[in-house]
Design a protein around this nucleic acid. Sequence first.
DNA 1: TATTGTTATACTCTATAACTATA
DNA 2: TATAGTTATAGAGTATAACAATA
Lengths: 157, 157
Amino acid sequence: MGVTDLTTAENAGDAVDLGILGSMIGYHLRRALGAFNIDYARAVAGTGIRQGLFGILSVIAANPGISQGMVGRALGIQRANMVALINELVGMGYVDREASPDDRRAFSLTLTAAGHAMLQESAVRIREHEELMLAGLTAAQRRSLAAMLAEIAAVEI
Amino acid sequence: MGVTDLTTAENAGDAVDLGILGSMIGYHLRRALGAFNIDYARAVAGTGIRQGLFGILSVIAANPGISQGMVGRALGIQRANMVALINELVGMGYVDREASPDDRRAFSLTLTAAGHAMLQESAVRIREHEELMLAGLTAAQRRSLAAMLAEIAAVEI
DNA sequence: TATTGTTATACTCTATAACTATA
DNA sequence: TATAGTTATAGAGTATAACAATA
């Protein structure tokens, strides 16, 4: 791993002291995700598969027939925000939405053949993107990082 | 650290398989930051100091007289987006904005006494918030996490 | 009563393009 | 010509409240 100084920001040759901010994990989380987001957009350019859409495709693929609400709860997406996302995926021809046989309020979601193909294609691109972003970390460090992030995400607030 | 399963999401007793998504660092980064953001808002409620504003206060405190553009570059905030943020902080009485003696295009920023006080108060709240979010990690793990995140944020895209 | 999906809405963050005044 | 700050604008993510249909 490089000799990254946590307390300063380097830009165009200028090193600026971040003050107390540099010691805060939340700040580094934000900057790391910002870098991830920029490269994610590059990696999937042209596919129309934003991060949220990829997550939905992945969860439906792993749980065919799952309801819209269950997908949202698994991914931390509000019910209200799921509507437009599922509409997009249905409109793109990647998701089939049918009335659930068990519960007439709910929808049963499955991937179409095109949806499976797009999931595979975008997964390949995203893997390459992650490889680029994590090139400075060993496999053990990546596992440790993922575990720590999952631990944080699971904190009961 | 807890026995967090990276491949499933637990919600109200339901364990949902995330599929390929569960193996992606970018996803765990997003969820961890989401949890951080929710608790950050709780921690600073009533202060009006959002994450971006805190960062700006911290950088100005560590670099009195710094220009608006330098602050933005240090924090990864676009020039265009800095304007409203600095306006807010000036309006709140936390930042003094004066014409730079060296360069009449630029502004020289310093904290007011109230700005220093608010930085201190919000820093205390944010430290408590980070302690809560990182309770499951040892000090060594926190250092490792911060270093890995800084490494990721520094990747040349 | 509670839940599913829906609509409407709003706030924050981020991004780009074009303008002005200075350098 | 390049840079500092500004304005306008747009996309994406996330949040809440209220509603209809169904459980």
